[in-house]
Amino acid sequence: MEKQLLYSESHEWVKWINESEAFVGLSEYAASQLGDIVYVNIDADEVSLKDVLGDIESVKAVSDFYSPLEGTVVEVNQEIIDNPALINEDSENTWICKIANVTNNVKLLSKEEYDAFIKEQ
């Protein structure tokens, strides 16, 4: 099982806890594109691939936060609800939600592959 962060092409990261559970966060690239994050709302429960988990709002814009996994949202990180700026400070060590009962995932990229992907954007 991959212990490193893996990335989706819609800029979430996935960190596996075991085969059926993972933390999901926002890539540093996406966080810096959004700028100051001021509000996060995760209201999804059962999600299929690419379903909207919730909203991430920065001063500049609102952005959908998509699920890279099929499963059940079992926990939302209360720290980022209370202080969304934590995502800007250290996005790759700040998980947003935990998804369990994972049965499927979108194509996930390694750090190197993701870096190459965003260069093309």
């Binding site: 700028g35 100051d36 001021v38 001063v59 500049k60 700026a85 800007n88």
Partner: peptide, 8 residues
């Protein structure tokens, strides 16, 4: 420039 470091 829209920002240098952070709008906030």
């Amino acid at each position: 420039p829209i920002q240098y470091t952070s709008i906030v």
